[in-house]
């Protein structure tokens, strides 16, 4: 199975997405300034969005950019600036001896084992779905995903509504707590 069997555009798209993802992820690790780490995170999230589009997950790519790269990273930046954290002062100290080598070893074993496990068998097994193909011609990705979410996964969808309300209320309570106790005292 040589690489030349695949269309050049798809290879270019994959390499672009992979570069965006890996560079951004390494940036999150390497950069000392949390603001720069958040910007690197945006790079990775955009790369994942590119990979989504390449695999015909159009709606998820849009949600990825709007919700992840938009809302979630903005929350991160809000918190970083609200707390006024500049350079992190704690990362150069190492209270746990050998933490980094052990972490690297554990991650290498996990990722290597995962890839070896996948490579030694068929990459993808299981029956191909007959109900809904994301690649089906004629029906858009958004229509398909919407149909699935509002029929098959309707209860899960309703549960996410409750989850989001609980999260918002929880965040407000966490942010208000100190002021409430001061008033109580």
């Amino acid at each position: 199975m040589s690489a030349t069997a695949y269309a050049l555009p798809s290879i270019v798209v994959f390499v672009t997405a992979a570069l965006l993802i890996v560079v951004g992820a390494l940036g999150v690790l390497a950069v000392r300034n949390p603001v720069h780490a958040a910007l690197s995170l945006i790079l990775t999230l955009f790369g994942v969005a590119v990979a989504f589009i390449a695999q015909s997950a159009d709606f998820l790519a849009a949600v990825q950019v709007i919700v992840y790269a938009g809302a979630i990273v903005v929350i991160f930046l809000f918190v970083i600036m609200f707390l006024g954290i500049g350079r992190s002062r704690h990362d150069h100290v190492e209270p746990l001896v050998g933490q980094r080598p052990l972490a690297a070893l554990g991650v290498a074993v996990t990722v290597g084992g995962l890839i070896a496990l996948l490579a030694s068998s068929h990459w993808v097994t299981g029956a191909t779905s007959v109900s809904g193909s994301p690649l089906a011609k004629g029906t858009g990705n958004v229509r398909q995903l919407g149909t699935a979410v509002f029929t098959t996964y309707l209860y899960a969808f309703e549960a996410t509504a409750a989850l989001l309300v609980i999260a918002v209320v929880g965040a407000v309570v966490l942010a208000r707590r100190e002021r409430v106790t001061e008033e109580a005292e």
């Binding site: 949600v63 992840y68 779905s129 089906a136 995903l145 149909t147 699935a148 098959t152 609980i166």
Partner: peptide, 21 residues
Amino acid sequence: RTLSDIGGQASVFFVMVVAAA
């Protein structure tokens, strides 16, 4: 994409919601 099953994309949708929360 590989299994032509939209359920995988629906799962991603829910993962995104949980991640936001």
